[in-house]
Design a binder for these strands. Structure first.
Length: 298
DNA sequence: CACTTGACCTGTCCGC
DNA sequence: TGCGGACAGGTCAAGT
């Protein structure tokens, strides 16, 4: 999916556009994309006003005036695109650009990946697109969000100031036999890290992804945490990474992939030592490493 | 419990 | 050109 920086970018885009808007209609065709859509939609969604847009880990929360929230996970290919409809226009509202990296990936919506469409009273629309259908939208009482199993398990937010080095190290104490990358990807350890930023931060910290947690030193974990936070913040500043499908709330790509040090750079020289970046498989995921900069300490 | 693997889906790319 | 398999930003439910 979109990882923490991508979901945060979408959150920021929606937060400037949808609060205050009133939901008039909701359409969906793939039931698994909106699994608990029932009569609650009529009672708590229609006529509800958007109050706030929040994020926790890789999950978006749209709080409504009915004290319900839309809980949204984009998984691998989800998009959440807001369109201020241009009435009576012959032009599609969103168009392809001329190939600039930040240009739109979206032509016109809805398209065949559109799973849920929210129409606001003013005619504007919020499209939930998801090619692979792994993502979902759920309607949950706002007070019950924290009780969802995922939110009970999920680890701290890496950009939270209260998340210290000591806390970071403590998150790994029960994962001593895991490979460091598998632990980093586990949302119960740290929230929001996915395949791109795991590879990037492990390269930046000089840690081989297959290193067992038990042999990663405290100093290395501190460095990993520092680099991870720097990289996540930079990625937010760049509007996230578009590897393939990801777009922000305006339908535009993120540019962090232009700054990636190892992710999808297999066959190219390491920016630090010129050694050729390799792609291997770790914890079932494609993994990019420089085997000179990232020494495997068993 | 900790840890790994397969399943959920569609689409694209690569080798035969 | 067609076809099979591997692979793709994530998480769960199953296995060991």
């Amino acid at each position: 999916m979109p990882e923490l920086p991508e979901v945060e970018t979408v959150r920021r885009g929606l937060a400037t556009r949808i609060p205050g808007r009133v939901i008039a209609q909701v359409d969906f065709d793939w039931p698994k994309s909106f699994p608990n859509a029932t009569h609650d939609v009529e009672r708590f969604l229609i006529q509800a006003e958007v109050v706030a847009v929040r994020r926790r880990a890789k999950v978006l929360l749209i709080d409504l005036s009915t004290d319900y929230s839309l809980v949204i996970h984009l998984k691998m290919t989800g998009q959440l695109v807001f369109v201020q409809t241009a009435k009576q226009s012959q032009e599609p509202t969103l168009r392809f650009g001329a190939g600039h990296p930040n240009d739109s990936l979206i032509n016109a919506l809805p398209d065949r990946s559109t799973r849920v469409t929210i129409t606001f009273a003013d005619g504007s629309k919020l499209y939930f697109n998801d090619q692979r259908k792994f993502g979902w939208v759920k309607l949950v009482p706002t007070v019950a969000v924290a009780d969802l199993p995922f939110f009970q398990r999920v680890g701290p937010e890496p950009l939270d100031e209260r998340f210290t080095d000591a806390v970071f190290r403590s998150r790994f104490v029960n994962r001593k036999n895991s490979m460091i990358k598998a632990a980093l990807l586990d949302q119960a350890v740290v929230a929001g890290v996915g395949n791109i930023y795991a590879d990037e931060s492990l390269w930046a910290a000089g840690i081989h992804p297959q290193t067992r947690v038990s042999v990663v030193s405290d100093e290395q974990l501190n460095t990993l945490f520092k680099r991870l936070r720097e990289i996540l913040q930079t990625a937010i500043d760049k509007g996230g990474s578009t590897n393939k499908n990801y777009v922000n709330a305006e339908g535009k790509r993120g540019s962090y992939m232009d700054f990636a040090q190892v992710f999808r750079r297999e066959g190219q020289p390491c920016f630090r030592c010129e050694n050729t970046i390799k792609k291997i498989k770790v914890a079932g995921r494609g993994t990019h490493i420089c085997s000179v900069c990232q020494v495997h300490a068993i």
